[in-house]
Design a binder for these strands. Structure first.
Lengths: 228, 228
DNA sequence: ATATATTGATAGTAATACTATTATTTTTGA
DNA sequence: TCAAAAATAATAGTATTACTATCAATATAT
């Protein structure tokens, strides 16, 4: 798996960047260091000037890769969701039983990332933390419809839809597969956030994972029968 | 109900503001106009300078009420959740049956606000939209733990806990009442957002409401029996 | 009528989020 | 291998943001 992951490339909508950061050493340093810095100081405090100082490069050079830090966040998020999608498809592909397939998908999608593959310049552990803390900010904007039209959220949407299809495969009569799928993905991020900062608002903790909560939730929801 | 709501006052942690905006005409104009402007231009573009220009007051005067726009957002959010809490407690108070009580609570908590009471200086319809689009930004910050310690999220937490208790009252064996409660509240905001901007990621639309989705979800989850 | 509190006006600062221009270095490909 | 092209760096500059400070004007309360 690691060897495979090492060589994959996430296909990201090329309107998100001005110059593909994967195409040069500077581009990779921008991505790598921005992940460390956004995790460290938070997206609000992060600036291209600070990033330039850290990587020994110039602010103006970074602007040749990304229009602004918002676009960089969209890039990082797309990378993350693309990577998760790959892991999910890989993990579920060979499973014929719809129940087991869905179960496996939920496992992959709602687990925290424990270690990065250390081959790529992308630290997936930190990227996972960034997505938990910052992803919402990438779409809670006045420009969301325009940016959606331009395809900046395609990978995420595809991932939600894949999960939705697996839900349908388990129970074709369940009336809200898309809402359940989007709730699982978004909710997992939220439950991780709560575990860290608002422990009284969640039952998840060191011994109970969001994966357990959502696995149970989806099971109950899809195998419900009203004779009980 | 309208008459009652007219005179209620939401008790908001007074560390959120420097001077109670409810205590003066200027304070009320700040709150009223900020709601209109944040809804209109989004939180990022909104500034105290622009707000001052709109209400014919001075930027520096606004800073005497709120340290910064983040605190103003915390104030508006607290007001909103306090108002919802009031509506929920009022609506559920007299209901003895736990199932019906929970059902009513979910109704109140996941419905959009259709008209404001027009007595208060707060437009609840717009405030509801603001909470959908901006609330996450109030806690997805590096300062969240400090601010939580100072009690800025008390009302929201109390509301989630109340809902969690109602869930326990319906099914004391369900292992994730807090997570389910927080998922319903947060998820309702998210489903409304998706309906507006990512319709393919939700089953909610003009004829299916997030209320229906979550009512059904909670019903299935709490009345599940594994004989099926 | 006067002290006090509130608001307004003006100005100023450091930082942000860029853009523009020009210089320097690196890459490439004829 | 040398010249052209591309990429990066350095420097400077602009408009805006997010404030703070000071002082003047006005309203209010005793």
């Amino acid at each position: 798996m690691e060897r495979l992951m090492k060589s994959i490339r996430i296909g990201i909508n090329d309107k998100i960047f001005l110059k593909d950061p994967d195409s040069s050493d500077l581009g990779k340093r921008i991505v790598k260091q921005s992940i460390l810095m956004i995790d460290e100081m938070g997206f609000e405090s992060f600036t291209f000037r600070k990033l330039g100082a850290q990587i020994g490069s110039n602010e103006s050079s970074i602007y040749r890769y990304f229009e602004n830090k918002h676009k960089l966040l969209l890039y990082l998020a797309s990378w993350y969701w693309g990577w998760l999608e790959y892991k999910m498809v890989f993990a579920t592909n060979a499973i014929p039983d719809p129940n087991e397939k869905l179960q496996t998908a939920i496992n992959v999608l709602t687990q925290t990332v424990k270690e990065d593959d250390s081959f790529s310049h992308v630290n997936e552990v930190l990227l996972n933390k960034i997505v938990i803390n910052e992803y919402s900010k990438s779409y809670l904007t006045k420009e969301v419809d325009q940016e959606n039209k331009e395809g900046y959220f395609e990978i995420y949407k595809r991932l939600v839809n894949r999960l939705g299809e697996m839900i349908v495969a388990v129970n074709k009569d369940y009336p809200y597969p898309a809402s359940l799928a989007s709730s699982v993905l978004e909710g997992a991020l939220h439950q991780y956030f709560l575990t860290e900062h608002f422990p009284k608002l969640t039952d998840c903790n060191e011994s109970v994972s969001p994966t357990q909560f959502f696995t149970d939730l989806v099971l109950r929801t899809l195998t419900y029968n009203n004779d009980g």
